[in-house]
């Protein structure tokens, strides 16, 4: 029996007899389809909602009932439960051109694992290639993190960090008014076109952080 299970049962016994507490708990689990050994986000509140229904049916004493619900809310409110499947994150430090290939290869493998189609695998790998090449060309060094988004909307997130000079004319680049002689403008616009979300933070002394996401559906 998990720690959480013991505590939830204890909380139910505040308002219900032992046998009814067990029934209510079992029913709550089957209704909410929650596994107390593997709680994901949202599971706690789902289970809580179902348990509350049971408590309202069986608890006779309103004061005990409220106390029971309060205790359960404490136990099960979102965030209290540990995440079932932590987002998987890969970090690649990008210092030279060969790291570009490493980074995009890792991104592509992760995409394949997540079930992205061939065309999206290539798109994501291309975006990573753009971001990594940006780092090598303009900042010299930096790093790329590739995260599998497993909770909520599934997908992949790529973040490129560098402490380079920053990109002063970002707005112009993204509005396609500017083209660098080395192709950066096209690269960033192209990356934005390939991905579902594109977010950039840059400044003269802060370096550059570009975060992009592609969702599975």
């Amino acid at each position: 029996m998990s720690q959480l299970e013991t505590e939830v049962l204890g909380a139910l016994r505040v308002a219900l007899s032992d046998i009814i507490a067990k029934s209510v708990y079992q029913l709550g689990l089957s209704w909410s389809k929650v596994d107390t050994h593997r709680m994901g986000p949202g599971d706690g509140s789902r289970l809580l909602a179902e348990l509350e229904k049971g408590i309202r049916i069986y608890a006779r004493d309103p004061a005990k009932r409220d106390a029971c619900v309060r205790r359960l809310t404490e136990l099960l409110k979102d965030g209290a439960a540990p995440r079932a499947e932590p987002d998987r994150r890969l970090v690649v430090s990008v210092d030279e051109e060969s790291d570009i290939v490493t980074a995009r290869g890792m991104g592509r493998d992760l995409c394949r694992e997540l079930g992205f189609s061939m065309s999206v695998q290539v798109k994501v790998a291309t975006a990573i290639s753009e971001l990594a090449r940006n780092i090598v060309q303009y900042a010299g060094r930096g790093r790329i993190t590739i995260t599998a988004l497993l909770n909520g909307r599934r997908g992949i997130e790529i973040t490129a960090y560098d402490e380079g000079p920053g990109i002063p004319n970002m707005d112009e680049i993204l509005n396609r008014k500017y083209r660098s002689t080395r192709g950066m403008g096209m690269g960033l616009v192209g990356t934005r076109n390939l991905m579902d979300e594109f977010e950039v933070r840059t400044g003269p002394r802060e370096g550059t952080v570009i975060r992009v996401r592609k969702y599975l559906s």
Partner: peptide, 19 residues
């Protein structure tokens, strides 16, 4: 009372299964 609870539990179980 237990039978009631059992019936309700069974009913709920059935509903859950139907769901």
């Amino acid at each position: 009372l237990f039978r009631d609870v059992e019936t309700q539990a069974a009913q709920a179980q059935r509903e859950a299964q139907e769901k």
